[in-house]
Design a protein around this nucleic acid. Structure first.
Lengths: 345, 345
DNA sequence: GCACACAGTGTTATCGTTATCACGAACAGC
DNA sequence: GCTGTTCGTGATAACGATAACACTGTGTGC
């Protein structure tokens, strides 16, 4: 069906090897011959088979990008950033959406290894992803962790400053007069949760506030997780006055749960969270958040990965920590709210 | 570096062919032999090379998904749906983000053909994508158009009912008392724009309203496009009272442009648009929209594509048109606004 | 006891490309 | 004029898997 290099060769009256030289831009081809071959390629509509090429060259020119949820705006931006850098470097990206399911993650890792991808970018489901990292390591495929560290795995990593950011959020809420602040959402098996918990506690301590374990309510990094965490929070004997959601979608779930009980943010609770919801924030300056430079997570991690692939990576692991920006909006009850603008576009 | 089928064969004391039979689940293998091979596979950590397999079998087990912008919530959902169905059918998905750039789209098409993907899902940049469709056709690779038709191309297509939806939106605005309604955003080279323009005009006509070409202001399907369209709208001698944005991100741009001039929605203008902004809508029932079942676009299109790949597709083209749902929220100024709930999760 | 089916396994060729080496022609240096 | 280099090209053998066929045994029917 498809045109092969041999047909092109025949058509141009040369050997396949010469055609190969032409399509790979080798210098060792006479100008006239090159023209003839290029013409044959155009006439036949030849497109080189990259499977065969990959097999022969022992590399496929593809990277894998494994994330827990493409539809989460945070990861979506990571995807866009990674895809962009990869494309410019001549790589294709295979997207893998694990839905935070370890089983799926495992399958994907196997598949990507089978596909002989040259590198893997992965935002792991949780610490138990360690097993998958080890598999990748055993196969000698370069990889970079995104957003989340994995306990027991020393490797290249691009993440946000969760500890500092959580602390800043607490400090902000304290500044607004809150002294009873709850932390909602997040599973302890995920590094960002632990970091945010740590920053949260630091923030409380720094402000001289007591730490109440009942105010740390864990749940999944999902809307429903936020919803459930808020419900459990509402059953506490003494309610907090401020809520710290462990990420953007959890915050949405929290708002929904509160609203169901007739409670409103910021009227009844101050709310702050991690990660922006891009379009939502433009429409309404609602969620006060530590906004992480998600797209940079993607571009930088891809850069690190490409370095490794090209053998330019240093011996030791590289650990990139990106700062977040506190954006004060309505949900925390502050009256100094910045209006969104188009500046970023 | 990587373990091959031959090493496994040697390790198990059989021929490579027998190993191949085992990994492909052929029946013709003695139970004892199978066990021995499986053990060898496990011991060596063998993962079959899918490039070689793809070359040999003449199919790679991958689909291409080409979209204008992954970060647009509408396309993000399409991606999620497509990826899901593809995975279940045993296919990998290569994600291609064209940023509505024809040149990039062309490169991606070439690359995907080179990669011998078994099928292509594509939300084309615009009508000039026709050239790329023809290239795909010439190579005999099945493909399905997503969301947008391409003038001059008869092929499988999954899209929303843009005409009817636009009409409904106009009718809704008319019901709320508006008679001067502008259509903002969208390039005429994109089929959805034309369809929405048509529905818009039908809506006006049905309501017995005059059609004023000055009220149709085209621009790109982007935030900046909406922003610019709104600016031009504001220069009109007689302003409209209601605005129909051609999609979600255009609506965001419109809101920003208005806000810059101290104008607010719905106080100064009623606003309605196409496509939801998932998380934003949950937080705030703000944008009145015809919500398209984006994820179904992805799943259905993938289904159609798989049918074609398996030769189950009918001779003639299949054209799926999915209905949208009018969700009335605040931006149109209606006072009957539905509160978002978690029901959908 | 012989033809025959069939289970289980191996052999060989092939998929489309590239790495490597080889070859002849042209040309330089001495 | 001989050796040696460089240029342009081709021949051959991989890369790692599978398809198609070939080959052993073993059992079955008569």
């Amino acid at each position: 069906m498809a045109v092969t290099i041999n047909e092109v060769a025949e058509h141009a009256g040369v050997s396949p090897m010469t055609v190969s030289r032409v399509i790979n831009g080798s210098q060792r081809v006479r100008a006239e011959t090159r023209t003839r071959v290029e013409q044959a390629i155009a006439e036949l509509g030849y497109v080189p088979n990259s499977l065969a090429r990959g097999l022969s060259r022992q590399k496929a020119g593809t990277l894998a990008l494994i994330v827990p949820d493409v539809a989460n705006p945070f990861f979506t931006l990571i995807v866009r950033g990674a895809e962009n850098v990869a494309r410019r470097a001549g790589y294709r990206v295979i997207l893998c959406n694990t839905e935070s399911d370890l089983e799926r993650e495992h399958e994907y890792v196997q598949e990507m290894l089978a596909h002989r991808v040259e590198g893997i970018l992965i935002a792991p489901a949780n610490d138990r992803s360690l097993r998958h990292m080890r598999i990748i390591q055993r196969h000698g495929v370069p990889f970079v962790l995104l957003d989340r560290a994995v306990a027991g795995m020393e490797c290249d990593l691009v993440q946000g400053d969760s500890v500092g950011s959580a602390r800043q959020l607490v400090e902000h809420l304290v500044r607004l007069g809150h002294s009873r602040i709850a932390l909602l959402g997040g599973e302890p098996e995920i590094s960002t949760t632990r970091d945010r918990v740590q920053g949260y506690r630091q923030g409380l301590q720094g402000a001289g506030l007591a730490w109440d374990p009942a105010l740390e309510i864990h749940s999944r990094y999902e809307i429903t997780g936020g919803y459930q965490a808020a419900q459990r929070m509402l059953e506490l004997p003494t309610l907090p006055t401020a809520l710290l959601a462990v990420n953007n979608v959890v915050a949405v779930g929290v708002v929904l749960a509160l609203r169901e009980r007739g409670l409103e943010v910021p009227r009844d609770f101050a709310l702050a969270c991690f990660d922006d919801i891009e379009y939502a924030s433009l429409l309404f300056p609602f969620l006060t958040a530590m906004v992480q430079p998600a797209e940079s997570f993607g571009t930088l991690a891809t850069q690190l990965l490409l370095d490794r692939i090209d053998g330019r990576g240093s011996e030791q692991r590289r650990h990139v920590v990106l700062a977040s920006e506190l954006i004060v909006r309505a949900s925390c009850g502050s009256n100094r709210v910045a209006m969104p603008s188009l500046a970023q576009y």
